[in-house]
Write a protein that binds this DNA or RNA. Structure first.
Length: 551
RNA sequence: GGGCCGCUAGCUCAACUGGCAGAGCAGCGGACUUUUAAUCCGCGGGUUCGGGGUUCGAUCCCCCGGCGGCCCA
């Protein structure tokens, strides 16, 4: 219902947004539902200005839950007393981490004489009669205790502390580094002040937040759960490791278009948007492949991109409509050398995040990524699994019979390639746990891959399976522009026949190939999946702000 | 798309067969100069996801809708 209220009627959007584009924000004043642009003298409904729900706006305090009302009243009282609950700057001298590092092992009940100014969010608070305790925390998770005693800060500052400070507030404390009688490293305050008043209470720290709340309010999840903070840092470490690995090997990082005029590079349904300037529909990219290959044609012979792809498909524990992808291409590489480089990239990322090629997953089990990895051939491993020979010549009818015998329901119109892959996933892929390369796929389902140099009917393509899911895929790329055109035209015919995952013919891409692309290898790898592989977390944990339906 | 489960205080959860809507933490008031999920005394806090129905009476049963989760396709 609420989303209905904020959805703009599409025909007006472009017009009104362009009005805003030419006006400075300070010309806007707000009233509860409507905002006026003073200079233009036009009124604009609030849904064009802000997509935030109005439910929790400051307006009517009577409707607020008690605890939020209390905190707002505290803020207002502070302002009346001339105290800014959100000061611009405070004289911080040390981070909490620095103080911990400088004083690793003081005896209990020590006074160092060192005066410091510290800041942090109040995560724990104990207000006793004449001595108060608070545990402060800073961004990296480091905590330090602040103490306020009557004889150091005086009666007013102590009672202000008790009445003004709530769990979750940010505070500044200036005082002496000491240890408490219990031995807790602390700062004994001479003065304190609020640095940011929290208007919402933190959820109780000792109960797990509901999964939905963790995702919808990730900032709260990050405040409360160390694992959430670690995941963000692990992801950053993995991405940095990949970039370093490529940099050391002489690869160049590029950024290719996310707004594209044609969908291409993968079989997937795209998101569609519209360009007002060009008055044409654009697609959010489903893969960067066709642009990276243009780079190789142009002479950027070792090239990679780490960025977002968008696929207008399902959203569940292993799929996100928006996901990060690594693709890299290398001239004179093949799917053999690719496999080695991909293994090294993953092993180096494991070292960056876990310090070892053996990683510890979220459930506490270990996963071994070390050494060389198993390699299977798709047709041979499938033949072994079904107990009879399956080759590129096996007919669709025979494959359908195999599906039937193994309890696999498939559309009887399915062709050879998809049947082989379905059977393989069901009988072999689902049972793979250790890192495994599966090689030599049906040509039919690999339109951008070259035929195997000796084995007829298969393509030089591998998939890498880690912990049973597909982590990466690599190819010896098809660079013959004539064959490529045949493949793309076949895809386009599928598209015309109603397959909305099929690619149209990208004439500019074909033109680039016609200038000559050196023999090359290419690889695609899901960054979110790499994180999942290295940490054992679900995709909605590895993505900071996954797409969720509006509240 | 189908099936099942869930939605109750700021948070995490109770509430027997349909009978006064509760607890812990958090909050408010008070006591306490060494607390670590402190302790003690007192108090407040609810559109039980929304709408409709059955009933003397609905958090509970029925219908429609919303959001989420799990399984299947």
């Amino acid at each position: 219902m609420r989303s209905e209220r904020f959805r703009p009627p599409s025909p007006q959007v472009g017009v009104v947004r362009s009005i805003f584009g030419s006006r400075h924000a300070s010309n806007l004043v707000s009233t509860p539902g409507i905002r006026f642009d003073l200079r233009a003298g036009v009124s604009v409904p609030s849904w064009l200005v802000s997509e935030q729900p109005e439910t929790n706006a400051v307006t009517s305090d009577d409707d607020l839950p008690e605890q939020m009302r209390v905190r707002r009243e505290k803020r207002a009282r502070l302002l009346e007393r001339g105290v800014d609950p959100y000061p611009v700057e405070v004289p911080r001298t040390h981070t909490l981490r620095e103080i911990r590092e400088n004083h690793p092992d003081l005896e209990p009940d020590t006074a160092t004489g060192e005066m410091v100014g510290i800041t942090g969010r109040v995560m724990f608070i104990r207000n006793t009669g004449k001595l108060c305790f608070a545990t402060l925390r800073e961004g990296d998770g480091t905590e330090l205790q602040a103490m306020l005693s009557l004889n150091r800060v005086g009666e007013t500052a102590l009672s202000d502390w008790k009445t003004d400070v709530d769990l979750g507030d940010h505070v500044f404390v200036r005082g002496e580094v000491i240890t408490s009688r219990r031995g807790e490293l602390s700062v004994m305050a001479d003065e304190w002040r609020l640095t940011s008043k929290a208007l919402r209470p933190l959820p109780v720290a000792h109960k797990q937040l509901a999964e939905e709340t963790r995702i919808r309010q990730r900032y709260v999840d990050l405040i409360l759960r160390p694992q959430a903070r670690n995941t963000v840092r692990s992801r950053a470490a993995v991405v940095r490791s990949l970039r370093d690995s490529f940099d050391r090997r002489g690869f160049v990082e590029v950024e290719t278009p996310m707004l594209q005029t044609l969908q291409g590079g993968a079989a997937a349904r795209p998101f569609v948007t519209h360009s007002n300037a060009l008055d044409i529909d654009l697609f959010l990219r489903i893969a960067p492949e066709l642009y990276l290959k243009r780079c190789v044609v142009g002479g950027i012979e070792k090239v990679f991109e780490i960025n977002r792809n968008f696929r207008n498909e399902g959203s569940d524990s292993s799929h996100s409509p928006e996901f990060s992808m690594l693709e890299y291409y290398e001239a004179y590489a093949t799917y053999d050398t690719n496999a080695t480089l991909t293994r090294e990239l993953i092993q180096e990322a494991a070292t960056a995040v876990a310090g070892s090629h053996v990683v510890t997953l979220a459930d506490g089990t270990e996963y071994d990524l070390s050494g060389e990895w198993t390699t299977l051939s798709m047709y041979e491993s499938l033949s072994d699994a079904v107990g009879e020979q399956v080759t590129p010549d096996t007919s669709a009818a025979e494959l359908l019979a195999l599906c039937d015998r193994h309890g696999l329901e498939v559309d009887p119109k399915t062709g050879h390639g998809k049947l082989v892959e379905e059977l393989w996933e069901h009988l072999v892929g689902d049972h793979l746990h250790a890192p495994t390369f599966v090689r030599d796929f049906p040509v039919e389902t690999s339109p951008l891959t070259r035929q195997h140099r000796t084995k007829p009917g298969v393509a030089e393509k591998w998939d890498l399976y880690v912990r049973g899911f597909e982590l990466a895929t690599g190819y010896s790329e098809l660079v013959d522009p004539v064959v490529e055109r045949e493949r793309l035209e076949a895809q386009a015919r599928l598209g015309a026949a109603g397959d909305d995952e099929a690619m149209p013919v990208d004439e500019d891409f074909l033109r680039s190939l016609e200038y000559g692309m050196p023999p090359s290898g290419g690889v695609g790898m899901g960054i979110d999946r790499l994180l999942m592989a290295l940490t054992g977390l679900g995709i909605r944990e590895t993505i900071l702000f996954p797409l969720v339906r509006p509240e």
